[in-house]
Amino acid sequence: MRKILRIGTRASMLAVTQSTWVKNQIEQQYPDTTVELVKILTKGDKILDVPLAKVGGKGLFVKEIEDALLDGRVDLAVHSMKDVPAEVPESLQVAIIPKREIPQDAFVSVNYKDVDALPQGAVIGTSSLRRKSQLACLRPDLEIRDLRGNLDTRLRKLDEGEYDAIILAGAGLNRLGMQKRITALFTSEQMLPAIGQGSLGIELRMADTELLDGLQFLHHRDTAVTVSAERAFLLRLEGGCQVPIGGFATIDNDTITLTGLIASLDGKTILREQLSGMASDAEKIGVTLAETLLDRGGKAILDEVYKNEIS
């Protein structure tokens, strides 16, 4: 292992916490190596007053970090997999996937125990189209308002009474040691997670084979297999990060089960299917499930969403 490694990371509290975990793991494994964090501001971090779907959904939180990898400013990057587009630059690879944290979305509220306890017309905050669509289906009476900003900002707005509840990724709260802020976790039946939610991805240059070998100790096979099925599903749908698409895979021995979802923006149409097969066919299962949903009407839904993004 090299004497000095530089990790490219977003500057948010959660991103730095995740990258610091990777840094600590590497330094523990290789005591003679010093790992430095290089904080990089991404387009998604700069634009806080516009819903992400309106700014373009692909690579909002990774492109600038990938640029730093490509020009050699950093040696590896740590991403939340739910932020990584289905396609990455051909000279890069997301090759190391550590063990997944909890994948579920978290219901966070000061006064209400879960989404069912919210009174009619309650205000709930999220900027995710995937969450909005499923919420609108689950509770069409709620007022869903956009919520952007870092985690502290979103929690402060909740605590100050701007929202009756907000939705956050449970994994992020866990990683930050803020488990007590999780009021309840949505089941996957209530709200299917985003592709890769709860998992991290370590991105490297394809040419860095020695570094890839040296980081294999961080790789978790079952997480990698399930995430590969989810990402194959997303790739076939040509979906970015900011579309009403959900996907979550589980693995039991060598059997993988993938559940996928495409939803209309108003939540009135929810297309959901499940497919199981051998773990060795993970990507094929993702593609097949995507084609099933497209044939069921998913293509028309996504065409409408992309038209709205452009307009």
Rank of each mutant, 00 (worst) to 15 (best):
V115T: 14
V115Q: 08
A117C: 12
P119W: 11
Q120C: 06
Q120K: 02
G121M: 13
G121E: 14
A122S: 14
I124N: 06
I124V: 14
G125W: 13
T126F: 05
T126Y: 01
T126P: 13
S128N: 08
R130I: 01
R131E: 04
K132L: 09
Q134M: 15
A136E: 09
C137T: 06
R139P: 09
R139Q: 05
R139S: 07
P140Y: 05
I144P: 08
R145S: 10
D146M: 08
D146L: 11
L147T: 09
L151T: 15
T153L: 08
T153D: 10
R154A: 04
R156E: 11
K157G: 01
K157D: 00
K157C: 03
K157V: 00
L158A: 11
D159A: 07
E162W: 12
D164I: 02
A165L: 03
A165W: 01
I166E: 09
I166D: 07
I166V: 14
I167K: 03
G170Q: 10
G170A: 15
A171L: 01
G172H: 09
G172P: 05
L173D: 13
R175D: 04
R175P: 00
R175I: 02
L176K: 05
L176D: 11
G177D: 13
G177Y: 10
G177N: 08
M178N: 09
Q179N: 15
Q179F: 01
Q179T: 14
Q179H: 02
Q179K: 13
K180S: 08
R181G: 04
A184M: 05
A184D: 09
F186V: 09
F186I: 03
S188P: 13
S188L: 09
Q190P: 00
Q190W: 03
Q190H: 01
M191W: 00
P193I: 01
A194V: 08
S199A: 15
L200R: 04
L200A: 10
L200Q: 15
I202C: 11
E203F: 00
E203G: 01
